[in-house]
């Protein structure tokens, strides 16, 4: 579904991604790991279309369409979802209203019928129940006054309601205590399906104890320098990232 080839991207004139290639198929869970400054979050931001990221070379195709040519909202409607590392507080915008507007905007863009409030609420309540989230969340403004854990859970809850084809989780484990981490992981696991792919961006191996990846990639200096199965994550856990520097430059991705 997702083919990234030789992606180069700059932020504020500085090259961060330097020839990243990655292929993700439906149903797969990929973990992207790497040291700080390797370009992990840049990858998520480039894929979701955040402003300020300049792609200088390479391509990203999503189901055969040029993802980089699309507006952020078009990417969302096509099925790309980014769980933010730092979810944004939006005072004055009610969570339920926000989610319904988002879902119906996506459905409209895809030529599907919009959901009326009854059908929408039914769907929302099912997802809340699945994720064991109190419906008090629905009455609050988007992320306003939420704890770190609540914000991350709200991201995964949004993912559950929007049902994307590709979910990119950007440091979803950061700032969570172990109980919150388990809850968030359970929410993600419940959404794994043969049609849905997940791209987890994380610094720590810890998240992978709860969401088992099919593939683990190591991102360093803007490139994927090593790929393997989940045992690669254990190697990183045991040895840290320092050994990467000893590998010959331009190691095969």
């Amino acid at each position: 579904m997702l083919i990234i080839e030789n992606l180069h991207a700059r932020v504020e004139g500085k090259e961060i991604l330097k020839g990243l290639s990655l292929t993700v198929k439906p149903g797969e869970v990929h973990a992207i790991m790497g040291p700080n400054g390797a370009g992990k979050s840049t990858l998520g931001n480039v894929l979701s279309g955040r402003e300020g990221y300049e792609v200088t070379a390479g391509s990203v195709s999503f189901y055969g369409v040029d993802l980089l040519a699309m507006e952020p909202e078009e990417r969302a409607a096509a099925g790309v979802f980014l769980a933010f590392q730092y979810p944004v507080e939006i005072p004055g915008v009610n969570n339920t209203y926000f989610l319904r507007t988002a879902l119906n905007a996506q459905r409209k863009a895809r030529g599907e019928k919009e959901l009326d409030s009854m059908a929408f609420l039914k769907r929302v309540r099912e997802k809340l129940k699945d994720m064991q989230i109190s419906d008090e969340l629905l009455h609050r403004a988007v992320n306003e006054g939420f704890s770190g854990g609540e914000k991350k859970r709200n991201e995964i809850f949004q993912m559950a309601v929007l049902e994307p084809k590709l979910a990119i989780l950007d440091e979803t484990d950061s700032g969570l205590d172990i109980d919150a981490l388990k809850q968030v992981a359970a929410g993600v696991n419940a959404q794994r399906s043969p049609e849905r792919a997940v791209l987890m961006i994380t610094h720590y191996q810890r998240l992978l104890d709860y969401i088992q990846p099919d593939f683990v990639h190591v991102l360093a200096d803007g490139r994927i320098v090593e790929s393997g199965d989940k045992t690669l994550a254990l190697k990183l856990e045991a040895q840290g990232y320092a050994w990467l520097r000893e590998e010959p430059a331009g190691a095969p991705a």
Partner: peptide, 8 residues
């Protein structure tokens, strides 16, 4: 961007 990333 947050709202747009959700499809709005």
């Amino acid at each position: 961007f947050y709202l747009r990333s959700r499809g709005i």
